[in-house]
Design a protein around this nucleic acid. Structure first.
Lengths: 145, 145
DNA sequence: CTGCAAGTTCAAGTGCACTTGAACTCAAGT
DNA sequence: ACTTGAGTTCAAGTGCACTTGAACTTGCAG
């Protein structure tokens, strides 16, 4: 009779995330586990959904720190309900909407800017101060193939 | 009588990119300069447009290596014409279109997936093998504020 | 001509998100 | 009981995109 909890290897296999990454997420407080008498991690099935959420958010370009902050809003004691997740996803949906709108603006402005010669950053709409796509910190951003 | 070329400080001021970053870009072959008799860098005004392009591409999530590859297609000897830039931007526009489409798909699928409980990565549309948003390498992705 | 901001090189450091390696223990099948 | 794959910790390493610091030189204004 199989137990309901998952080993780190099982969680890794099901989520497509390496065990080392899962330990890293746990260290950073993004996911949680209990331990067996022999000190091995055991994950609730609900952690799988957390991991999924983390990967989705990362694909959208959110840092682990911000993901952790978002996940903190899920209930600590009990397994999150569908309602908990829906509430959380609503906020990410809004963020996605914003990001999509920004990228559309970027796209619609690109030809125009290059064509008109304003691509000098000073007066370009792409570099509007209000534009939240502005660079923020260093590091690689490998989001496109 | 001011010369037409820019010092690194001037290019930095006009582009909003730190001098250290400009040296870094040059080292990586993304931009080019000539030197004065005293070994200081002087930039053509057209380099400003290159820097702008680099920043725009970065905001979209493209790595410096891929940006460099794209910029290699600009003419080496002469200052790029508007046509050169338009041709280049057309490709990025296509890439932006793809990325926007993917994010829209992500958005439209998010509620559904979380609602239906499929957010277990296995069968989820968000993790379709054909989905090019799939993670590709490590590193931070700070694209949202 | 002198002073000093702005330029130069080179090596090393930073932050993020992990990965890898060493040395070890645990759990399950034969 | 023994082997073997999977798990454990901890320290160190990796890749990207830069930044910082030290030690030095240039170029312009007064």
């Amino acid at each position: 009779m199989k137990p309901v909890t998952l080993t780190i290897g099982e969680l890794a296999a099901r989520s497509g995330v390496a065990p080392s990454a899962l330990r890293f997420y746990e260290e950073r407080g993004l996911i949680h586990s209990t331990r067996t008498s022999g000190n091995q991690r055991r994950y609730e099935r609900s952690e799988l959904r957390r991991v999924s959420f983390i990967r989705i958010a990362q694909q959208v370009g959110v840092s682990l720190e911000r993901i952790r902050d978002a996940l903190k809003e899920l209930p600590e004691g009990r397994t999150p309900t569908k309602a908990d997740w829906t509430r959380l996803s609503a906020r990410w949906r809004a963020e996605l909407d914003d990001r999509i709108a920004l990228m559309q603006r970027l796209r619609d402005t690109l030809d125009e800017c290059i064509g008109c010669g304003c691509l000098s950053l000073q007066s370009c709409r792409l570099y509007n101060p209000g534009d939240e796509l502005a660079a923020q910190g260093s590091g690689p951003r490998k989001l496109l193939g």
